[in-house]
Design a binder for these strands. Sequence first.
RNA 1: GGUGGGGUAGCUCAGCUGGUUAGAGCGCAGGACUCAUAAUCCUGAGGUCGGGAGUUCAAGUCUCCCUCCCACUACCA
Length: 573
Amino acid sequence: MARTLITSALPYINGVKHLGNLAGSMLPADVYARFKRLSGDEVLLICATDEHGTPAELAAQTAGISVQAYCDEQHEIQRKAGEGFNLSFDWFGRSSSPQNAKLTQYFALKLEEAGLIEERTSKQVYSIDDGRFLPDRYVEGTCPHCEYEKARGDQCDSCGRLLDPVELKSPYSAVSGTTNLEVRETRHLFLLQSKKQDEIRNWVNASEDWPSLAKSIALKWLDEGLQDRAITRDLSWGVPVLNADGSARPGFENKVFYVWFDAPIEYIAATEEWAIANDDDWKRWWRTDEGADDVSYVQFMGKDNVAFHTVSFPVTILGSNEPWKTVDKLKAFNWVTWYGGKFSTSQKRGVFMDQALDLLPADYWRWYLISNSPEGSDAGFTWEGFQAAINSDLANVLGNFVNRITKYCVSKFDGEVPAAGEPGDAEAWMIDELQTRLPTLRRYYEQMEFRKAAAETRAIWAAGNEYLTKAEPWVKYKSDVDAAAIGVRTGLNLAALFGIIAQPIIPETAKTILDALGVPESNRSMNTGDMDDVAALLDALPHGLKVSAPPVLFSKIEDSQVELWTEQFGGGD
RNA sequence: GGUGGGGUAGCUCAGCUGGUUAGAGCGCAGGACUCAUAAUCCUGAGGUCGGGAGUUCAAGUCUCCCUCCCACUACCA
């Protein structure tokens, strides 16, 4: 059995994720995982909340609770949101888990043994009133180039220039507003990425199933020269820096590993968390010397994360000099935009996962976000586009098809799959369509071309409607009931097939359809072997099987709802 | 500034290594049908493929210049 390991970029703990976050990583990872499972692979889909770092500490401080309590709360919220969207994670872990702490410390020690870690002193802005070091972007002030007054220490939002926090005029803390700042020296562990430059380049060049986008980003970093980077921070919340014997590393008692060092390691640690919970073995997924050599590992992420996955994390993995599994294929996404701008938590622009589910069931959103996946470039979300896609694709093309054929069967054939009638021209046409379209659909999924997979899925549904027009059982019924029967039987089998191919994207509705048609779990696969014989697929339901018309699968989105939501969510302004 | 990705029918987008009359969905117009969620099916109108120059027998598809949008640019994650 082929084995596929899939990871989605870890959503940051700070707040409910919006539809753009969902569409850019977690959702396509889930769709792909579902497809691979239906294709007969053994799949492990891993995700987790990324819980360390300054934003989590500050958010907890604002909320007046401990960081641990804050993360506990937020993790649960995100877990529930994912569950609400039917994200089929085999494990949704936490980067604050003991497994991740241990593994992160382990990697750091291995890297040090390999001579890739060095202590260095650097300078950083310290806020005396806040009692903490400030990351560059938490220092704000007036831009020395354009005089913009709220420029961040790393970059000015107004003129776009990269800055150093010490360049800012009248700097202040973005945390508290205090101007009581000073530059202090601080010691950190640096990962000597420059030493791995050639090895990483060879590894990148050897990669095959990477999109050009990913490769070009990786090569760009390599061309500019990998810089050694600090992998520790002056924070209290995070993975402690320890010696091999478990004692605190001298001078690092108040420091932790940098969130970007431990976050990708959580992919592995989350698998360990999964293994513990399921009494399974995690190493067979991650250690090529312990069974992971035949695993195909696929990563999903937003474009902004590509460098971390193609360069930084590989330095950690390869630098350990141990046989860890590295990524085989990766898929990067652009952003979903909101009426031309960005989704923004702080400005309350856009729709967030929990809000979305209050409006409509998950399948509506899943379909829209996958069929409009931000693959080639940013994809704009608009209520009008959403309404059009749902009403046309789901309600009219798929929902109506299932409704018309099942209702007709119930009213004219006692709700039983008819046995009579021989296939004719219309059936031959349908078989021909499916013989080209089903392999095409599978190919798009294999290639992770999600927009195209959705479009092909829809095209197959639409072909079903076209088939019914050709077969016109309601006309034939008047003169030849057997001739009508073949149309109904084929139509019912098509409905079942439509449910099967709908499973990766709209799993709940697919289940409703397949349950209504009495298709057993074991016959819902999308495996090639099971989909090759199209003629058999169109006569798969046992003759005489009792079927029922499921309730209306999708209700249409009314103009009045679009108006309401536009007002409610500030779309269009 | 640098790097990368985009600018193709009213809208959202396909168009691989250059090759017959540039495609799809939505929307729009007309027609058909009546089993169905006023759904479905058919037909049609609609584009000087961001602008300019060049290479070529031939360019949306290659080269150069210009222009607009977006992302990334390594101590935010």
